[in-house]
């Protein structure tokens, strides 16, 4: 029985780039070099490992994003994914997690799936809720935040290292899985992989292809609104004090103000 794996990935601005907000208070992604979100690399890696353990699996990598997002797909294809789906539409600009999860869910259904794998959070938004939202929208079990995952006999199993306890989880396919950065180092693409990626199919979809109305997504369709965005002042020369007996306490005060304590 063929195993269809869909990996959701996000194209994010590089962490060292100059990140800022645009006039409409959406994230300004112009002029910033982007890449496949590091946390999603783990998802691609686990998908590839699951696929390599059997001979009937196919890995499709999916992203919702502007034209540049194709770089994220190409990297995943270079790592070894079989094909890619790119959902791109101007009306998607400014979508919140609700809009994004709706688009992803419809694209996943259109592609056909037995297992959806995502990373634990995105490195630029870090909401970390998309996998749960996908499970809710698709009406399938969520097996999320796994540091170990395996598939066998139509069942996905994994280990979730929560705050209070470590749990072993199990659910029947189809299911939505997310993996953490503890799930195993992602492979580097090889030169061979980069060459092979050029020949792999990339399907383009827009909102019409997914039967989604523009009003349901994008900035206008978002259910949250950013009212203001303020830049934090740059690091100024620091404060240096001499200990007069309460130096430790004053330092603790500073740390508390920075929310470290």
């Amino acid at each position: 029985m063929a195993l269809r794996i869909v990996v959701c990935v996000k194209y994010v601005p590089g962490a060292t780039g100059d990140r800022r907000f645009a006039d409409d208070l959406t994230v300004d992604r112009d002029d910033v070099d982007g890449l496949l979100s590091e946390l999603d690399e783990y998802a691609v890696e686990q998908a590839l490992q699951i696929a390599e353990a059997r001979d009937d699996a196919e890995v499709t990598v999916l992203t919702v994003g502007p034209e540049d997002a194709e770089d994220a797909l190409r990297k995943a294809l270079s790592m070894g994914a079989d094909k890619a789906v790119h959902v791109e539409d101007d009306d998607l600009h400014g979508s919140d997690v609700m809009g994004t999860s709706l688009v992803l869910a419809k694209a996943i259904e259109k592609t056909g799936y037995d297992l959806v794998i995502a990373g634990m959070a995105s490195t630029d938004g870090a909401a970390g809720v998309v996998p749960a939202l996908l499970a809710e929208r698709l009406g399938v079990p969520q097996v999320t935040l796994l540091s170990e995952v395996s598939v066998g006999d139509g069942v996905v199993r994994g280990r979730r290292d929560g705050d209070a306890a470590t749990e072993q989880l199990e659910a029947s396919l189809p299911a939505v899985v997310s993996v953490t950065d503890q799930s195993g180092e992602a492979r580097y693409p090889s030169f061979m992989g980069i060459m092979a990626a050029k020949k792999k199919p990339v399907e383009s979809l827009d909102l019409d292809d997914l039967d989604i109305e523009a009003e349901e997504v994008g900035l206008e369709g978002a259910w949250t609104k950013v009212d203001e965005a303020a830049e934090r002042p740059a690091r100024t020369a620091g404060t240096v004090v001499t200990d007069e007996g309460a130096g430790g306490k004053e330092l603790a005060e500073f740390l508390a103000g920075q929310k470290f304590v």
């Binding site: 399938v140 290292d161 306890a165 470590t166 072993q168 199990e170």
Partner: peptide, 10 residues
């Protein structure tokens, strides 16, 4: 949908 088959406190 998702069964917890084992739990160990951290």
């Amino acid at each position: 949908g998702t069964k917890v088959t084992a739990r160990t406190p951290r």
